[in-house]
Design a protein around this nucleic acid. Sequence first.
DNA 1: TTGTACGCGTTATCAG
DNA 2: CTGATAACGCGTACAA
Lengths: 330, 330
Amino acid sequence: MSVTIKDVARVAGVSYSTVSKALNNSPLVKEKTKIKILQAAKQLGYQPNFAAKSLVSKKSSIIGVVWPTVERMAWSALATNINDALVKKSYNMLLSINPLASAISIFNQFRVDGILVFQEERTLLESTDIKSTVPILFYGESGSSHYPEINVNRRKAIFEAVRYLAEMGHRRIAYIGDLSHKEANQQEKLIGFSEGIMQFGLVSHPDMAVHVKKLSWEEGFRATKQLLQSSYRPTAIVSASYDLSAGIIRAVRDASLRIPIDISLISYDNIPQMAGLEIPLTAVGTPVDKLAENLVEALLKIIEHPDSIHPFDDIDIELNERASCGPPLK
Amino acid sequence: MSVTIKDVARVAGVSYSTVSKALNNSPLVKEKTKIKILQAAKQLGYQPNFAAKSLVSKKSSIIGVVWPTVERMAWSALATNINDALVKKSYNMLLSINPLASAISIFNQFRVDGILVFQEERTLLESTDIKSTVPILFYGESGSSHYPEINVNRRKAIFEAVRYLAEMGHRRIAYIGDLSHKEANQQEKLIGFSEGIMQFGLVSHPDMAVHVKKLSWEEGFRATKQLLQSSYRPTAIVSASYDLSAGIIRAVRDASLRIPIDISLISYDNIPQMAGLEIPLTAVGTPVDKLAENLVEALLKIIEHPDSIHPFDDIDIELNERASCGPPLK
DNA sequence: TTGTACGCGTTATCAG
DNA sequence: CTGATAACGCGTACAA
């Protein structure tokens, strides 16, 4: 049914091995015949067969990405950026939203060149022991030390956010985020906040940190209402995620407070969408495009040298000033 | 590097064709040797090579799904459900977030068994003429009539929502959604609303329909504030999407109105998450699980009979009563 | 019940 | 420059 190089060869009146060369732009083919072959190929609507190609070449030019069911904005943005970065390196990205073990199994059978795993919580992994011939890179907590992982330094990011506010003159800073100790990533952020408060000798208060069950805008909204009604009167808020921040803005405005005049807001998750909110948000974290490039680069490095050990540094964080922070009112 | 059936054969002390049979659970192999082979395979960590397999069998057991950049909740839910439905039929799903043309090209080279395209706006498609040997099914507007497509009857869905409210006694109903005529899907919803208003002889008012630029919660929030401040005093709201509704609820509650006592709310997008909102929302639309099953079923039908024409009916809609609608206050 | 041989669509190596 | 031909890993008739 589908057309092969042999069909193309027949139409072009050459042998199929010549077609193969022509299609791969080999210099061993005369320009004229090359053109003839290319025309025949186009005319027949030839599409190379990936399976055959990767069978012989042992390469697929595909990177498999394992994605837990994703709802958060920051992750969508990351996926898009990784895709772009991969295309730039002439790879293609395929996503699987299956459970980790089966996704990895599928990608292994496909003999993709590399696998990138987005891991939010680490609990899943520990039970099932992952077997993979294909190089894997974890983004987030891998849980097992068998595979290389890259993480961003969330602790430092939040710490820097606090520093930024403190240096601006803020003394009463609040934090809205996941206060439970279930997810290591979220815990890191909280620690960063605490460290900042202590380090810069800021005001402490029992209500200064508000817990959210999910990093969603609803929770951000709710938590902010709660915060503003408490006896703590913050002049600035540190938010643990983009989605959270979206809800925070709404709640703050509803309380007829102005950002950044009455209250400053700085958010984790350094994605371009921050600029598109009602108020362009000053944010801290690794810019997604850089993060994506780092991840891709690291993965390609692993692919090229699968055996050597790869101790990846945490990716550097940045603080992007926009319009949501200013000195406290008085 | 990676282990093949030949390696397994050597370890198990049989020929590799026997291994092949054993692995495919053929009855032509003695139980005892089968076990021996299976053990050897596991011990070596054997993973079948997809490329080789699909090369000879002309099947990949993979369905490629083309996804525009994902941000909306309802779509995430749909993807998850399709994945599940596919697994049930022993297929695997792989996602591509590349532009339509290149995604289809990749899937063609992979010789996936079928392609499912999520198409929100149709503008993209019309310029590039899609060529695909692999069967394609469009969900949404394909734009060209070359490929089969399935859609849900959004017009009817919204119409039924209006009917539901009307029969409950509501006379002043508002609509929050995309009022521009750019996207056919959104236009359909608006038409359904207008038809309902006319058919049931309800009150008309210039402010009864509020436009949102995006189907996001922010816009839902904003539009609702606007609606509640206008001179129109609706007793019920019809919302065009889940995300919108989330924002609507917040805005309504902020105005100290109670749902459903002071105001009723019914939403398009029939997804389980509706039940998880602050107020379990009565919703109309095709339940995602059914939608997913329908799509999968239709696609498999096309795969089996690629040549015949497939005029798919719109998928039926359902109205799920939850806790957000009641009779008007007086 | 097991093994042999061939072909799937490519690339790569050699001869011509 | 071009054309045979051998792999690649697997399924499957067919032979043993």
